[in-house]
Computed example of a mutant assay.
Amino acid sequence: MDVDLARSDAVYEHYREHQQDRFRAKLMYGMLAARIRPVVQFASRDRLVRAARSGNPLLIAANHVSERDPLVLAAAGFRSPIRRRIGHMRVLAKDELFEDPEQRRKIDTLGGIPVFRPKDHGVRAAAAAAGQMFGVCVDRMKRGDSIAVFPEGTCNDGDVTRLQKLGTGIGHIAHRALRAGLDISLVSAGIAYPDDDRGRPVVEFGEPIDLSRFRDETPASLTRIIQGDLQHVVDDVYHAH
């Protein structure tokens, strides 16, 4: 099945049910960790351990500064308490990454869910597909999956220490999940590529935030909350390096 906007109904029905092979997923995440060797740091490792063990879905928000970011985040996840979620981790990725069959197999193993971005397909055409994608994310979270998002939507080619304005997609996912009665934890991940660490990327996982206390917030206000927390973690990772 092609990942094509014209067939978004079939695409998202497929990814609503798709389950990657957990053994192959752990193997691939482990290989990425061995190859990339990211420096991983934590605002509170103990709290991240508790969140990862809780069984509640995690909503991971990461900044986007390089095309390498999804692989770096996967490698860092393997070297963190989030490792226990591998095999039940879904990652939103732009649809063009699913075009090449070999690359798609790898992305499917990593837990990819395609996103049809407005910048690629137009606002109106992408909006309906976005609603379907939000629904798939919430259905996956109901089954215990966690979701990783790069909510800036595109690589930051300006000041990488300052987030671009986040798209409200991540706020819609959080809003729908909370309205569905799910207890979810936000985990912000700051990614940096310092020049003074032999080329090794640095990833900091922020202190988990229980989003259930924001259950009555709107998608837009949830997006602002997420932006503030992610910027705080990005500040930390760049200040430390």
Rank of each mutant, 00 (worst) to 15 (best):
L5T: 01
R7D: 09
A10W: 11
A10D: 15
H14L: 14
H14F: 15
H18I: 04
L27I: 15
M31P: 05
I36N: 09
R37F: 02
R37K: 13
V39R: 15
V39Q: 13
V39H: 11
V40D: 01
V40G: 04
V40P: 03
Q41K: 08
Q41G: 08
A43Q: 11
A43L: 03
S44I: 09
S44Y: 08
D46H: 15
R47V: 09
R47Y: 07
V49A: 03
R50P: 00
A51M: 08
R53Q: 12
G55Y: 07
G55M: 07
P57D: 04
P57E: 03
P57N: 06
L59T: 10
A61E: 02
N63R: 08
V65D: 04
D69G: 15
A76R: 05
G77A: 07
G77V: 05
R83N: 02
R84F: 00
R90P: 06
R90S: 15
V91S: 00
A93D: 02
E96D: 12
E99L: 07
E102N: 13
I107S: 04
D108A: 02
D108Q: 10
D108C: 04
G112S: 08
P114F: 04
F116P: 05
F116W: 08
R117N: 02
P118Y: 01
K119C: 03
D120N: 13
A125Y: 08
A126Q: 11
A128H: 11
A130M: 15
G131L: 14
G131C: 09
G131E: 13
Q132W: 12
C137Y: 04
V138P: 05
R140W: 04
K142W: 04
S146P: 07
A148V: 15
P151W: 01
P151L: 03
G153F: 07
G153H: 08
C155Q: 12
N156M: 00
D157K: 15
D159L: 11
D159N: 15
V160P: 05
T161K: 14
R162F: 05
L163I: 07
K165A: 09
T168Q: 12
T168I: 10
I170C: 00
H172C: 02
A174N: 00
G181N: 07
L186T: 07
L186M: 10
V187S: 01
S188G: 06
I191H: 01
P194S: 01
D197R: 14
R198I: 01
R198H: 10
R200P: 00
P208I: 09
P208L: 06
I209F: 09
S212Q: 02
R213E: 13
F214V: 04
F214W: 11
R215S: 12
T218E: 00
P219H: 06
P219S: 01
P219A: 07
P219D: 00
A220L: 14
S221V: 08
T223C: 13
R224F: 06
Q227T: 15
G228L: 06
G228N: 12
D229G: 11
L230A: 02
H232G: 14
H232C: 13
V237C: 09
H239N: 13
A240D: 09
H241A: 02
